Simulated assay, not measured.
Amino acid sequence: MIVGIGTDLIVIDRFRDMLQRRPGLAERLLTPLERTLSIESQAARFSAKEAFAKALGSPGGMRWLDCEVVKNDDGVPRFVNTGTVAARVAELGVGRIHLSISHDGGFATTMVVCEA
């Protein structure tokens, strides 16, 4: 059963400008590993977190750093959840999370489907 669906779209240049205008913002949004990636991949990771939050019902109190986007050995992206995000996933009974990420032409887009 589908518990939630979330999508997001980010303009990569706008994301870059936001990070430059607000020192320390990257440290609040992206994990240390995510911050080592290209700006395109960073924007895509943040877009994935936004889509995931929407799929989880956008509850207040979730921390961005409690969710990290990693790739498996085949390059397929997935979430690693801890703390507040893991608690929300458990609360909703989410057993499977589907994540699709793409970035091209100055945009990053993602889709997340949560299943129970």
Rank of each mutant, 00 (worst) to 15 (best):
S47P: 05
T84H: 08
P77T: 07
E91Q: 15
S100G: 08
E50S: 04
K54M: 09
G95P: 07
V94M: 07
E68P: 00
V76L: 09
M18N: 13
F79Q: 02
A43L: 05
S58M: 14
Q20G: 02
I97E: 12
R63P: 02
F107C: 05
E91T: 13
A90Q: 14
V94R: 05
F107V: 15
R96N: 11
R45D: 11
G57F: 01
D74I: 11
L65W: 01
G106E: 00
S102F: 03
W64G: 02
R16M: 01
R14C: 01
A44L: 07
A86Q: 14
F52A: 14
S41W: 00
F107L: 15
F52P: 02
F15C: 04
G83L: 05
G60L: 12
S58K: 13
Q20T: 13
W64N: 07
L56C: 09
I101N: 02
S38E: 01
S100T: 13
L33T: 15
L25A: 01
D17N: 15
R21A: 12
D74H: 15
A26M: 00
G83P: 08
V69M: 01
D17C: 12
K71M: 08
A26S: 12
E34Q: 08
A51R: 00
A116L: 10
D8C: 01
E68S: 12
T110I: 06
P32I: 04
F79S: 06
S58A: 13
R14T: 11
N72W: 10
P59W: 00
R16A: 14
L25I: 09
A53M: 12
V112G: 08
R28D: 01
E68N: 05
D13T: 12
M1N: 14
F107T: 13
A51E: 04
G93Y: 09
H98C: 06
P59K: 05
V76T: 14
T84V: 10
L56Q: 04
L29W: 03
D8A: 10
E34P: 06
G4R: 06
